[in-house]
């Protein structure tokens, strides 16, 4: 519980808008206590910038408890920064030392255009879910919940895959800016459960096709995504997605675009 004061040098990516060219700017963060969260450190820098009549650093954040998936920046070359299994908002300054230089960059991917500074547009991930990341069940028409027993191990697996918070760190960390881990987590979550079987094949094809259409890269099995993932979503789901896709393509009896909704 000891408290220390840090003086830090920040090199921050500043970009005025989606079409503007960006640049790094350097700021000093003075007398930062080690109990602050990383984003609180940025709040302090920003408040000073505003009071001095300058533009604060734009960054995305919301719940600040590591679950909403809004925050995220690349800190010294690592998505969400140096602490494993930790989102940017849950990173605390005790992970840094006095005098450190910190480089802050946005998620860089063609699928995530920069909106401003460290804020990127991740709606591509929403569109991947829209392509089939759901079970089609009409409100009010669900059968009694306990009618279909699901083995505990299967339910636990599905939950492992469902832990994804959609922050996009996997894309940011991947050398190819691939959204495989994100897409695979949802395909796996739903394909594991009996409720997800009816749409299983269509789902895999549609979601993968959308993932590609968004301009994300392909998976080259480096494993950077798994390391960067704040929720520990496993690479095994990518292997599962690959199986699901091949199976659905081999078995497909309807052309992919002709699906009726």
């Amino acid at each position: 519980m000891s408290e220390e004061l840090l003086n830090l040098t920040l090199h921050v990516w500043r970009q005025d808008g989606p079409n503007a060219s960006g640049r790094f700017e350097t700021y000093q963060a003075k007398e930062i206590t080690t109990h602050m969260s990383f984003l609180e450190m940025l709040d302090v820098v920003n408040e000073e910038l505003i009071e001095n009549g300058k533009l604060p650093i734009a960054f995305d954040h919301d719940c600040r408890e590591g679950i909403c998936g809004t925050c995220g920046m690349v800190i010294n070359g690592v998505a969400h920064g140096p602490q494993k299994l930790t989102t940017t908002c849950q990173l605390h300054m005790r992970q840094f030392n006095n005098g450190d230089e910190i480089w802050l960059e946005p998620w860089r991917a063609s699928g995530f255009p920069v909106l401003k500074d460290l804020v990127v547009d991740r709606t591509a991930l929403d569109r991947i879910i829209q392509a089939g990341g759901y079970i089609s069940i009409r409100t009010g028409s669900a059968p009694e919940a306990n009618e279909m027993p699901i083995a505990k191990a299967i339910a636990d697996h599905a939950m492992d895959a469902a832990e994804c918070i959609g922050c996009g760190a996997c894309v940011a960390a991947c050398p190819n800016a691939s959204a495989s881990l994100f897409t695979a987590a949802k395909i796996s979550h739903l394909s594991l459960l009996p409720q997800g079987q009816a749409e299983r094949q269509d789902r895999a094809r549609q979601m993968v096709a959308q993932m590609d259409a968004e301009g994300f890269g392909g998976c080259t099995n480096h494993g950077e995504c798994e390391e960067a993932c704040p929720k520990g979503v496993s690479l095994r789901w990518i292997a599962r997605m690959n199986r699901e896709l091949v199976r659905s393509m081999v078995k497909a009896d309807t052309p992919i675009e002709s699906r009726k909704r």
């Binding site: 690349v74 010294n76 991917a109 063609s110 800016a177 691939s178 480096h222 494993g223």
Partner: peptide, 22 residues
């Protein structure tokens, strides 16, 4: 084909980049 696609997918390069698993 993947190489071309993957290069394009990154867009702009990171100033700093640290590999954790590669």
């Amino acid at each position: 084909s993947l190489w071309a696609r993957n290069r394009q997918a990154r867009g702009s390069r990171y100033q700093k980049r640290k590999d954790l698993a590669t």
